[in-house]
């Protein structure tokens, strides 16, 4: 059992470093890991779809509950799979039409209600109330106040007018459009900042795994020695890193003469 745990730990370190090896250059070890990722990912997706959808919603209702209504989705599913045949693939248009229409229907009402109406409604600040609660500008309340309310409405209108591509952009329109662009730039800058934050957070997660910081504070049997899981993880990381560097160097040396002759 311990052997499997160690193998698992070693494998996860190897695969982490295999993906990170792409930072040095595209190489066969990375490509191997990339294809493994796709294979396992699709496999997990298929298994979860079977146990989450097909079994409870189709197989059991048909075979155990004898629910006649479930014949219709089965029929649509059969027609959908006709897509893989060259001869009968036109039949797949029926289930595709069904699913596209269902998505279009829910999307239409969802966008209209959840986004369009709610967001327009929320973009009409009560300036009188804002003045009473926060004045013109309140440092203690994130800069809330009349100024922020006005900037919000003017910025929104300027952005919308900037997106109004079919209108002729004469001088006043160009000025408004420029305000819109500047507002968008502030927003995109904030997005960039948050994207950096997200990506570094993910790198922190992997670094913690490589340094064994996410391991429980228990001992692990390595041959005749008993070491802490964190220490064992760090040794494995260093060893695997060296192995990957040597392997990439060897592979590059092997392919270099081939490319020079070609």
């Amino acid at each position: 059992m311990d052997l499997l745990a160690i193998t698992g730990l070693l494998l996860s370190i190897f695969l982490t470093l295999a993906i990170l090896s792409f930072l040095f250059d595209d190489n066969p070890i990375y490509k191997f890991a990339e294809h493994l990722f796709m294979g396992v990912g699709i496999g997990i997706g298929t298994i979860e779809i079977y146990y989450g959808v097909f079994q409870p919603k189709l197989i059991l209702p048909l075979l155990e509950e004898h629910r006649l209504l479930s014949i219709f989705p089965l029929l649509l599913l059969v027609l959908l799979f006709a897509k893989v045949t060259r001869k009968h693939q036109d039949w797949a248009r029926i289930p595709i039409a069904f699913i596209v229409a269902a998505f279009a229907g829910v999307k239409l009402t969802g966008e209209a209600n959840g986004r369009l109406l709610e967001q327009v409604r929320a973009s009409m600040p009560d300036l009188q109330q804002l003045y009473e609660t926060s004045g013109w500008w309140d440092w203690d309340n994130g800069g809330a106040g009349v100024i922020s309310g006005l900037v919000l409405v003017l910025g929104l209108c300027a952005c919308l007018l900037h997106f109004y591509f079919s209108a002729r952009h004469n001088r006043p329109m160009r000025t408004i459009s420029r305000i819109g662009i500047l507002t968008l730039m502030l927003s995109f800058g904030a997005s960039f900042g948050f994207t950096v934050m997200g990506r570094i957070s993910l790198a922190i997660g992997r670094a913690e795994a490589l340094l064994g910081l996410d391991q429980p504070n228990t001992l692990i049997q390595l041959g005749s020695m008993e070491v802490h899981r964190m220490t064992a993880t760090r040794w494995m990381t260093v060893g695997t890193l060296l192995l990957i560097i040597v392997s990439i160097a060897a592979l590059r040396r092997r392919t270099a003469p081939d490319s020079s002759t070609s």
């Binding site: 209600n113 959840g114 109406l117």
Partner: peptide, 18 residues
């Protein structure tokens, strides 16, 4: 978009920084 507004749900979110 789909259900919060339609059913007036009390909803919170924990999302990625992106």
């Amino acid at each position: 978009l789909q259900i919060q507004g339609q059913y007036n749900l009390e909803m919170a979110s924990a999302c990625t920084a992106v």
